[in-house]
Simulated assay, not measured.
Amino acid sequence: MSRILPALAAVALAATASPAAAYWEYGHQTVAEIARANVRPQTRVAIERLLRQSTALLDTPTCPTRTIEEASVWADCIKTIKTPDGKRPYDYAFAWHFQDVNICKPFDLVEPCKDGKCVSAQIERDVKLLRDKRTPAKDRVQALVFLIHFVGDLHQPLHAGEKDDKGGNDVGATYGIYATPHFNLHSVWDGPLAERAITTGPSLVRRYPAAVRTRIAAGTVTDWSRESWLVAHDSVYASALGGDPCAPNPAHVTLDEATIDKLVPVAKLQVERGGLRLAKLLDQALS
């Protein structure tokens, strides 16, 4: 059953979304569930062991991490945490959720990932921290929950490619019959389109055949970054701008039902890719 109505109820909160706001809960949780279903048994045990320690080590009671589903949204949840003096202790991680790679220029991560401040660099860093048994327990737990979230972020195309428009946040959008003023291009791909894709057809949360896992999880984090960047070019902006992704952005775009129908398989595949690639990285880091 589609979650479009609860998603619309949450749109007002997403209206002020920055490029770091990602996939809402449903997309991230589904990526995490796919990964859990496809990791090796010993990896699953290691994940559960780390998450059992997470409540005490992270000390973020308003942002629980007891399960992989909860852990998948921790990196967004902590953005709301404030100290008594009004400071946000996790602001340092703001730029880790995305990478500003212009879809109308050659693909290049050098400048967007300067000083490691982009999602792909943080994914690689988290894997290294998890693989190193000398990493302090708190840092390993934090690396795990960041990794679970960031792989989902990378597969939301507007976290991998954009047009100097805050990942589509500056472009208002009408989604099908929903002409709410709170939607923008980014929030459409975060919420209603992702949820429609996830709830269309057979469940994405299942054990995939080994050949499928190998095919989808092939490549490197850089390869996956380029692929998501291309999805932003070929599908996100092309569909919104009448076929020319590099045309000037209008203030508002409309995705009609025919366009949405064409985008559902694209969004569905991105969630599937995110889950199986997260499983691969977790196996590499924890098995």
Score class of each variant (00 low, 15 high):
E48K: 02
L109H: 02
H97I: 08
D76E: 15
A32P: 00
L13Y: 11
E25C: 01
S54P: 07
F94C: 02
T60R: 11
A7G: 15
A95L: 14
E33G: 01
I81V: 15
V101E: 10
W74A: 03
A56H: 12
T30G: 03
V110W: 03
T62P: 04
T67Q: 06
R40G: 04
V101C: 12
A9V: 10
P84R: 07
R49T: 14
G86H: 14
T16P: 00
A75W: 00
Q53F: 08
D108W: 02
I78G: 03
E25D: 14
A12N: 13
A21I: 02
L8W: 10
T43M: 01
D85M: 11
A20C: 03
Y92M: 13
L13C: 06
A14L: 15
K82C: 09
P112V: 03
A10H: 15
E25N: 11
A56Q: 13
C63V: 11
H28F: 05
V31T: 12
V45N: 01
Q42H: 02
C63P: 03
L109S: 02
R44A: 03
R44K: 11
P64C: 08
V11S: 06
V45D: 06
A22K: 03
T55W: 06
A9M: 14
Q42W: 06
I78T: 14
P89E: 09
Y92S: 14
V31H: 03
V110M: 04
A9S: 13
V11W: 04
Q29F: 00
V101K: 05
V110Y: 03
T65W: 00
W96P: 01
L58N: 01
A37C: 02
I103L: 12
L109D: 04
E25L: 12
T43K: 02
L8N: 08
A10L: 15
E69K: 05
A32E: 01
W96F: 13
S54V: 01
S18R: 09
I68K: 00
K82Q: 15
Y92C: 09
N102C: 07
A22I: 09
W96D: 13
I47E: 03
E25R: 12
I68A: 01
P19E: 05
D59I: 09
N102T: 04
T67P: 07
K79Y: 13
R52S: 09
I103D: 07
V110K: 12
E111L: 14
R40Y: 04
K105F: 12
D108F: 03
T55D: 12
V39T: 00
F107P: 04
C113V: 10
L50F: 10
D91P: 00
R44D: 08
D85T: 13
P64Q: 07
T60C: 11
Y90H: 14
F98V: 09
I103G: 02
E69I: 01
E70K: 06
E69D: 06
F107K: 08
T65K: 02
P64R: 11
L13V: 13
R52D: 10
E33M: 06
T16N: 10
L8S: 04
R36S: 12
F98S: 10
R44L: 04
